[in-house]
Amino acid sequence: MKKNKLALFSIPYVIWMALFVVAPIIMVVIYAFTAAPPDGGFTLDNFARMGSYTVVFSRSFQLAIIATLVCLLIGYPVAYLMAKEGPGFQRIAMMIIMLPMWMNFLLRTYSWIAILDRNGFLNQLFSAIGLFDLINSVFGTNITYFKMIGTPGAVVLGMVYNYLPFMILPIYSVIVKLDHSLLEAARDLGANSTAVFRRVIFPLSLPGILSGVTMVFVPSVSTFAISQLMGGGIQMMLGDLIELQFLGGAYNPYLGSAIALVMMVIVIICMYVMNRFGEGEEEAMLL
């Protein structure tokens, strides 16, 4: 009886998934292997044409990897320090980390534009303190502002700012649940703090690291709002390219579907490799 009730309650979810997840994926697959009108029919030409966008693919994965590494370098120490502190500090730190997530995604991104723009807060501050005058007098230049918007660094900054909580929280949730008896046993055996971290804490926190890397890398490689706004329309990424094919002047949903399909396959392969690596680490620790 309970199983029948659960199955009944799951029907709306199944319908939702079928309409808004499965059906769009099927449409993308069909479009990817279909020639544009008036030809129609099965074709692989859409995939062959992607060779001209190698630079966009390369830039997308390069910036996504950089953003993921930066998030890891910042997020792991933050998560480790949070886990070592008391419950009161952890609650405050969690609120500070989650507070920006309560605001709209685009609003957070636009705030960085106001800070980094040519007439933004930072350039006005540098001008007010005489930094530009100092640089011009020393190097003989005529700088009036620093170009920050429209650069790869701005895109990476936007990714790190928006996705950093997705790196901190999985790592924190794993470290805070570590068995303290293992740490005490390592210290009793003569291990110092560095050895305890290197031989016990870090290996046991790898599942959280892998989860964080996946949760940051996947949205980073497929982002388009951040690259459009903070990249100034110059740093085109895969998300921008796909949007251009569906909504832009180069309207070609068949090519856009092929690019989206290839990106999905690459992301799935990356996630599979990460999960397999995580399973291998867990098995090694159990042994």
Results as ranks from 00 to 15, higher is better:
69 L>M: 06
77 P>H: 11
117 D>W: 11
109 T>W: 02
194 T>A: 15
6 L>E: 04
283 E>R: 15
218 V>K: 01
73 L>K: 07
49 R>W: 08
266 I>W: 00
38 P>A: 09
110 Y>N: 11
81 L>Q: 12
203 P>C: 04
246 F>I: 10
208 G>A: 11
270 C>I: 12
6 L>M: 06
200 V>T: 09
59 R>I: 00
53 Y>L: 14
29 V>G: 05
198 R>V: 14
196 V>M: 10
29 V>T: 04
214 T>A: 06
51 G>D: 08
127 S>L: 10
39 D>E: 10
145 Y>D: 11
87 P>R: 15
189 L>V: 12
2 K>D: 11
97 I>S: 04
199 R>T: 15
199 R>L: 13
270 C>S: 08
181 S>Q: 14
174 V>L: 11
280 G>Y: 08
216 V>L: 02
61 F>R: 00
214 T>Y: 01
164 L>R: 03
189 L>C: 15
262 V>Y: 02
31 Y>G: 09
199 R>W: 10
173 S>G: 05
171 I>L: 06
72 L>I: 11
225 A>C: 06
131 L>G: 13
260 A>G: 13
252 N>Y: 02
241 L>D: 02
172 Y>G: 12
39 D>C: 04
88 G>K: 06
266 I>K: 00
152 P>R: 00
71 C>F: 03
43 T>K: 02
38 P>I: 07
8 L>F: 04
206 L>W: 10
57 F>N: 04
82 M>L: 06
45 D>V: 04
144 T>H: 14
5 K>Q: 13
204 L>P: 03
144 T>F: 13
121 F>T: 13
35 A>E: 05
127 S>Q: 14
97 I>C: 04
27 M>C: 10
43 T>R: 01
259 I>W: 01
148 M>F: 15
258 A>T: 07
47 F>D: 01
112 W>D: 03
78 V>Q: 06
138 V>E: 05
76 Y>D: 07
152 P>T: 00
48 A>V: 09
34 T>H: 05
103 M>C: 08
21 V>T: 01
245 Q>N: 15
117 D>E: 14
131 L>C: 14
60 S>M: 00
43 T>M: 03
88 G>D: 12
53 Y>D: 02
141 T>P: 02
254 Y>W: 05
28 V>Q: 03
262 V>K: 03
275 N>K: 13
22 V>H: 09
185 A>G: 03
94 M>H: 08
26 I>G: 06
184 E>C: 10
48 A>K: 07
171 I>G: 02
127 S>T: 10
38 P>H: 08
